[in-house]
Design a protein around this nucleic acid. Structure first.
Lengths: 229, 229
DNA sequence: ACAAAAGTGTTATTATTACACCCATGA
DNA sequence: TCATGGGTGTAATAATAACACTTTTGT
């Protein structure tokens, strides 16, 4: 690196792909833009990086500010960065996208910059040319990341509440992967994979039928062996 | 996003983790810094994003400029972005790191900005506090990405020449994972995994012993089933 | 009693592992 | 001929998949 009054400064933003499983389908959090460009359009939440702010902190702040989701229940990881020279018509921007996975929470409130905030099905948002900027590409990448990570990490638990049944966890896999899984084999596999889930003393009948044991997320960072699609 | 004379511009750089397998160990391409800060120290190659340049194009350009490696034989993918407010003592920077995997090529020439360029063992560069900025963290993340991707993608072929023997491919796995693998089972697994490698008519005796068939990289984007560590 | 969902048992198939053994070359 | 690494066969073990069956609740 040389020194650089001659090198251009870029506006850095953080955008969020916040996914949840709701009504049996994968949904993404969208905000209605309150500012130009694309005012009134549904878009991914995001905003500018602040002068002395870390990237991850900026993502967590946007999650709070724009969506009012309780951050402690949300898994947040960096997804990728996007910097095509013309991705924003106003100026040169580079955005660092973050992927957030949330349990099925109440519809979020709109924050200061957003006129409205709403969960919408991923397939709807990717079907037409709904999303502005390169948000469709970012969303596709986020969904693909989530799909891949369900295989070899215990990340599916991030879509569940603090305690959950094995069947609820299975529905996460079925929705994200768009497949059906054998409930009985899935049950064995999950409960036998070291560190994936931890048994609690409680049971629930909220899914109907025989009471199901409730589990909490385990501490294993990876699944051995992986759960293959 | 609101409009933003009030929002700060950030200097965006691209840094490269270029890995290869050389002399039976995993090595990383380093350049000796020709400028302050950290002049004279070994660091990851990198440089500033240009005004109308895409991120991937900037990474490919830096690979050419600073290391003079033939880009067509190098796998290049985005790794992650790093933006701690004090990561560069000069100014606020965000760097988009790219991971490059190269076959065992001749020692690269130094480019314009670098006083020198050299392959160095990864374990050496991570042992002390050799690397400036947050380059040690970036290198660790790059190595971890490479290790993980060998399991479920055919990426190991990126460390090999255009044609390679199964044993050469196995040595890549052994070096990157720091394990030993059963040569006979590895051979079967690789040749039977659909789309991993494609047989060529040629053989070679460059590894000694009985002539080994040469293969090219296949077209499968993922390995089914994965090759587990 | 019945429906619904949880959870266990059993078996066939497939994948993994370990290692004996043969093959084709250079020296 | 011997050493070296390439490559195939085979049998034990382990993981996966398919599905019959029992358990425990709400209605």
């Amino acid at each position: 690196m040389s020194d650089l009054p001659d090198y251009p400064r870029v506006a850095v933003t953080v955008d969020l792909v916040v996914l949840t499983v709701r009504d049996g389908e994968l949904q993404v959090l969208t905000i209605r833009r309150g500012e130009e460009p694309f005012r009134g359009r549904w878009a991914l939440p995001g905003g500018f990086l602040r002068p002395r702010e870390d990237l991850h902190a900026a993502a967590a702040r946007e999650l709070m500010e724009e969506t009012a989701l309780p951050a402690e229940h949300v898994h947040l990881e960096q997804l990728a960065s996007y910097g095509a020279p013309d991705r924003d018509p106003r100026m040169r921007t580079v955005t660092v996208a973050y992927l957030a996975l949330a349990p099925d929470l109440p519809t979020p409130e709109a924050g200061s910059d957003a006129a409205d905030a709403r969960w919408q099905p991923v397939h709807t948002m990717l079907a037409g040319a709904e999303l502005p900027f390169d948000h469709a590409e970012i969303l596709r990448d986020g969904v693909e990341r989530a799909r891949a990570k369900l295989e070899y990490t215990p990340l599916a638990t991030a879509f569940c509440a603090a305690t959950f049944t094995i069947a609820e966890l299975r529905r996460v896999y079925e929705v994200v992967w768009d497949t059906t899984l054998d409930a009985r084999n899935f049950h064995r596999k999950v409960t036998k994979t070291e560190g994936f889930v931890v048994e609690t003393p409680e049971t629930t009948t909220r899914d109907g039928g025989r009471p199901a044991r409730l589990y909490r997320a385990g501490s294993a960072p990876r699944l051995h062996p992986p759960l293959l699609r």
